[in-house]
Design a binder for these strands. Structure first.
Lengths: 218, 218, 218, 218
DNA sequence: AATGAATGAGCCTTCATTCAT
DNA sequence: GATGAATGAAGGCTCATTCAT
């Protein structure tokens, strides 16, 4: 009775889930198929059978991570297109943080780690990340910022503002190890995450609105 | 007392310089001592003799990179403490970009790559980075932002604003591979670097000034 | 009594035919059951089911190759026992070349390759080759040479002459890769095959007749 | 004091000698570097260090085999250019047999096995074999046969006769396993080798002289 | 201070075979 | 009869490290 709507065999699914963790934590090269197979309790030859080779497994794991992340944290949650853009920006930032950096206690930010590793040593996985993760995210953010800035503003300016927003979120979570060493008080926690999200929201809104002011007067 | 006019043997110096490039470009694990020795034209056993092991060489190379970077791009260049804070923020951002991300054409952003790698897989090198690179940088930026915001603002707010500024610079350069795939027009170049630096400066100034307003009126 | 009109299941037959090609071209070890199964469009477990293991399939393929070869190129074709022995030797050499080395353009000399491989690393297949291929061939050739030499000549001499004839044919075709590298002009072709067959015939006839002469006078 | 004129380290030499045997007996693919290293009592990584990879070792072993074989059995031994061609052909055949097939009891015919394997599955080694082994051998034999046939005979005819001579020697020794199965009396031995060499010599001389006759009369 | 040689551990991959259905 | 999934045993190669000089 099990698995009646499960297109992935148990073994294959188990391997993919383990691989997601291991690849995120160790990177493509450092991760070993041996470790993955051991953790998944399968024979090492199973990788070749199900995924062809290590790279095939890596791409499968990356795509799986994306799928799960998008299902858990859809981009348009928490607001709808009729909401004012300020509110939608706030919702976007919170959702983006949850999706990319994880939010539940103990949940490891695998997707973010995969993205960062791909930026250091790009593989075919970068195309997956850009095409299926970054592009739709940028699209959603662009729409909000375009509405905040008004139609007269150039696309280039919108791109730059998108980068400023995304860049802030990346930094606060990605550079967490440094921040904790510098300021032990800012230890990661659910409430600290909310503080950061609020800061990014207001910092960005303030900046963007100033950009937009010239067109309306001042 | 030995080596009074030769604190580093030529061999050792040569190895360190090569290692800096190779470690930055390939990461700790992927870099091979064989390649480093070949490029430095030294015997493979020299690493063990001079640095103990691969990790010892890595730390030596990291420290060397920091020294060179700080000598080439001192933090306070381009302005002095008597300048208005807006101007000093602008100078800081430009200098930070040059130091961390490189500025000359073809120059590899070794220091940034080392930092990013340490963030993914912290080693002893992270202490070096935090203590000798990040802390003074944050200190300088904090001073500028504190002056912009006024004394009434909490240290926490200042830290958050520092993060927002640094985060933006990191993103634009670190995520360069993604940005190029998404927007081929924004290819990296000296002029594009200037555009980005100006954007970060005005975006941040706008945001910070808005933060500061409430205290003086509104 | 089953399979009265289907002694070999289609699947089994298909596998054998594919295996003959693959084993001849790649040798026993280098050939993979996976490739054979893929080319034959059968499941990989079918080999185990039908033939026990890889070696069983190999032997089956070898026997099939022999059967086909003998059906296509019967030994006594092109002449009959009433013909003069010179003519029969000529016919034998041509037929032997066709059978062992192939004659049609693009036809791979599978049987020869199998024989050569068995000579390098004898398996049970060598018994099949000796008993069902070599022995009748040697018998036919012996009869011709015996007639050419006369009854007084020892069996040992006949055996040596048989070896000389067979040896020449083997060399010219088997060492083809070397001959082409040494003398690019002697590239393999239908006409070149005929030139070689004629040479072997006259060379051998000349030699054998000289052998025979002493007995009749001089 | 040892090895004062020994350009090869003991280890390297040991590996090459073992590799020659193993590659000849098992072929390039079937031979394993693990077995070679075990027999040579060296670490498996020594192959990478000294020869780059398996193929490098293979080529080194092949060249070593050639060198040893040529030093032990120089082509022009047993006769000089002033001898009559009949005598020189006899000497050539005996020497060729010794060189390629081995002559001492228990001596394995490694060089022949290597050649045969290269003919089945050519690698870069075939170029070595053709260039450094086959070409000079054919050159020496050609000279003898040209003298036997006279200048009027075409180069093509000389090539064909060379092939006939070489082909016979190959067959008798290469097909030894079959010959022993067919005619147990013809077991390999020093005296049998002499019988074969004499047969090939007279068989070939008879044939070649008949070729040459037309030019002088008949 | 420096070197060439050697080592052992580990990695990815491939293959024939077998199991459960 | 036939299949997809799974297994264990090797195999070639790479790497950091160490040894003897």
């Amino acid at each position: 009775m099990k698995g009646q709507d499960n297109p992935l065999s148990d073994t294959k699914k188990r391997i993919i889930e383990v691989a997601g963790k291991v690849f995120a934590e160790s990177g493509f090269r450092n991760a070993t198929v041996r470790e993955i197979c051991k953790l998944a309790s399968v024979n090492i030859a199973a990788i070749n059978y199900h995924f062809g080779d290590k790279k095939g497994l890596y791409l499968a794991a990356l795509k799986h991570l994306r799928t799960v992340s998008f299902e858990q944290y859809p981009l348009d949650a928490g607001s709808d297109t009729s909401s004012p853009p300020e509110e939608r920006l706030k919702a976007f930032i919170m959702q983006f943080i949850k999706r990319i950096h994880g939010c539940r206690e103990g949940e490891s930010p695998w997707l973010r780690m995969m993205i960062i590793r791909e930026l250091m040593e790009p593989t075919e996985g970068l195309d997956v990340i850009v095409g299926e993760i970054v592009r739709p995210t940028f699209g959603a953010l662009s729409a909000i910022i375009r509405e905040l800035l008004g139609k007269q503003v150039s696309e280039k300016t919108i791109r730059l503002c998108c980068g400023s927003v995304i860049g802030q979120t990346f930094f606060f979570f990605y550079a967490q190890p440094i921040r904790e060493k510098l300021f032990p008080a800012d230890r990661s926690s659910t409430s600290e995450t909310k503080v950061i999200a609020d800061h990014i929201t207001s910092f960005s809104l303030n900046a963007i609105k100033s950009y937009a002011v010239p067109k309306k007067g001042r």
